[in-house]
């Protein structure tokens, strides 16, 4: 199943998610995160997208996984944060 969301991060930037997920297992198959936000280092976002594969589409688990990847890859967001990213992803399935 493919889905798309557009989410204006409160006090932040515009986040767009293209999501492909398994309807049976409710897990991420492929994700592309785009938008006019800033993330440092930029290239880490590609690792984050890759590592989000197979994550369950559940708010708690998503937030946990995203927060852990942010810390693992030392990502600093401006105009975006872990909560907003979780929200944007969940908007694809709500």
């Amino acid at each position: 199943m493919q889905s798309h969301s557009v989410y204006k991060v409160p006090q932040g930037k515009l986040l767009k998610i293209n999501l492909e997920y398994d309807e049976t297992t409710h897990r991420i198959l492929h994700i592309r995160i785009t938008g006019d936000f800033f993330a440092y280092p930029e290239e880490a976002m590609e690792h984050l997208e890759e590592q989000l594969k197979d994550t369950p589409l559940d708010r708690k688990e998503l937030l946990l996984q995203i927060s852990s990847l942010i810390s693992q890859y030392h990502i600093e967001f401006i105009g975006l944060n872990a909560e907003a990213l979780t929200q944007g992803i969940l908007m694809c399935v709500l």
Binding site: K16, R32, T34, G35, D36, F37
Partner: peptide, 9 residues
């Protein structure tokens, strides 16, 4: 376009 933007979008 910004690094994270989609060109075609």
């Amino acid at each position: 376009i910004g690094y994270f933007q989609s060109l075609v979008e």
